[in-house]
Amino acid sequence: NRTSFTQEQIEALEKEFERTHYPDVFARERLAAKIDLPEARIQVWFSNRRAKWRR
């Protein structure tokens, strides 16, 4: 089942994506704690966001 992201979560994710397309585990963990999502969801979001960026 899909995770629905809040506007705040999307903004935080997009901001980090501007900084780096490949956040390391520490950056992902920090973001996970900040926006209250599992680190695995963040990893998947970045993977999908990079795919979207390449299109």
Rank of each mutant, 00 (worst) to 15 (best):
A32I: 04
H21M: 14
I10H: 06
A32E: 04
W45G: 00
F26W: 09
P23R: 01
E14C: 02
E16S: 07
E29W: 07
P38I: 04
K15Y: 08
R54E: 07
T20C: 13
Q9L: 00
I35V: 08
I42W: 00
E16L: 10
E39I: 10
A12H: 14
H21Y: 04
A51I: 06
A40C: 11
E11L: 12
V44L: 12
E29G: 13
T3M: 12
A51C: 07
F5L: 13
Q9I: 03
W45N: 00
R54C: 14
R55I: 12
A12Y: 04
R50T: 03
Q9V: 03
N48W: 06
F46D: 01
A27Y: 05
V25E: 15
H21W: 09
A12L: 10
E39H: 08
Q7M: 10
Y22E: 08
F17A: 02
D24H: 01
S47D: 11
R49K: 12
A27H: 12
T3H: 04
V25W: 12
L31P: 01
R30Y: 15
R41D: 14
T6H: 05
K52G: 09
E18K: 05
L13V: 01
E18Q: 07
R2A: 04
P23C: 03
S47Q: 14
T20P: 00
A12E: 15
W45D: 01
R2C: 15
H21K: 09
E8K: 06
R28A: 07
E8V: 08
D36S: 15
E14M: 02
F17S: 01
Y22P: 00
V44W: 11
R2N: 15
K15A: 14
Q7V: 11
Q9S: 03
R49M: 07
F26A: 15
Q9T: 03
E39P: 13
Q9E: 06
N1I: 11
I42A: 01
F5V: 10
A33L: 11
Q7R: 12
F17W: 14
N48D: 15
R49V: 02
V44P: 02
E18L: 07
Q9M: 06
L37I: 14
K34Q: 15
Q43L: 10
E29C: 13
I35C: 10
F46W: 03
E14D: 05
R49P: 01
Q43C: 08
F46M: 08
R49Y: 04
A51L: 07
N1A: 06
K15P: 01
R28V: 15
R19K: 15
Y22F: 11
N48Y: 04
R54D: 09
E11K: 10
A40D: 12
E11D: 12
K52Q: 12
H21N: 04
W53E: 14
N48S: 11
R30C: 10
R41I: 15
W53K: 06
T3F: 05
T6M: 04
K15T: 14
S47E: 15
L37A: 09
P23A: 02
V44S: 09
I10D: 03
R30Q: 05
F26N: 15
P38M: 07
A51T: 05
F17I: 01
I42H: 02
H21F: 07
E18I: 06
L13P: 00
D24Q: 01
W45Q: 00
A32M: 06
Q7H: 10
L31F: 02
H21I: 08
D36H: 15
V25D: 09
D36A: 10
T6A: 05
K34P: 03
Q43W: 06
V25I: 08
F5D: 03
F5M: 14
T20K: 03
S4K: 12
R30M: 08
Y22M: 05
P23D: 00
V44F: 13
A40W: 10
E14I: 01
F5A: 06
W45Y: 05
N48A: 13
F26M: 14
A27E: 12
R41S: 10
P38A: 11
I42E: 01
K34C: 08
E29N: 08
L13G: 00
E29D: 07
P38R: 04
I10P: 03
R28G: 03
F17E: 01
R54Q: 15
K52Y: 05
R2H: 06
A27V: 10
R41C: 13
T6Q: 03
Y22V: 05
F46N: 00
Q43M: 12
I42Y: 01
R50L: 06
R54K: 11
H21V: 05
T20Q: 08
R28E: 04
I35T: 15
E39K: 05
R30H: 12
F5R: 04
I10M: 03
T3R: 09
S4R: 09
R41H: 08
D24F: 00
K34H: 04
R19H: 07
S4V: 11
E14H: 02
A32D: 01
D24E: 04
E8A: 13
I10C: 09
S47R: 09
E11Y: 11
N1K: 15
A12C: 11
R19A: 06
E14Q: 06
W45E: 01
V44Q: 05
R55G: 04
R49F: 02
T3K: 07
L31D: 00
R19P: 00
R50E: 05
K52L: 12
V25L: 13
Q9R: 03
E39C: 05
S4E: 13
R28L: 14
A27R: 11
L37F: 05
R19G: 05
P23T: 02
R50K: 02
W45T: 00
S4N: 10
E16P: 00
D24Y: 01
A32T: 03
E14N: 04
R2K: 09
R49G: 01
E8I: 11
E18C: 09
L37Y: 04
Q43A: 13
K52A: 13
R19W: 06
L37W: 04
E11F: 13
F26V: 15
R55C: 09
I35M: 10
L13T: 00
W45C: 02
F26D: 15
D36F: 03
R54G: 14
P23G: 01
A32N: 02
I42N: 00
L13K: 01
A32W: 01
A32K: 09
E29L: 12
I10Y: 15
E39W: 04
R49T: 08
R49A: 14
F26C: 14
N48R: 07
R49C: 04
A27F: 02
S4L: 15
D36Q: 09
V25C: 10
L13M: 14
W45F: 01
E11S: 12
L13F: 03
E14T: 02
K52V: 13
A33D: 02
K52P: 02
P23E: 01
R19T: 08
L13A: 01
V44H: 08
R30A: 08
R55T: 10
D24L: 02
S47V: 14
V25P: 08
Y22I: 03
Y22N: 08
P38L: 06
A40Y: 11
R54V: 13
W53M: 15
I42S: 00
N1E: 15
A32F: 00
R50F: 04
F26I: 12
R2E: 07
S4G: 09
D24N: 06
H21S: 04
D36P: 05
L37P: 03
P38Q: 06
Q43T: 09
D36I: 03
A51K: 08
W53V: 14
N48P: 01
F5S: 03
L37V: 14
D24A: 03
L37M: 08
F5N: 02
W53L: 15
A12P: 03
I35Q: 05
T3P: 10
W45R: 01
W53P: 08
N48H: 15
K52M: 13
H21T: 06
I35G: 02
R41K: 11
T20L: 04
R50N: 06
E14R: 02
K34R: 12
F17C: 01
V44E: 13
D24G: 08
V25M: 15
A33W: 09
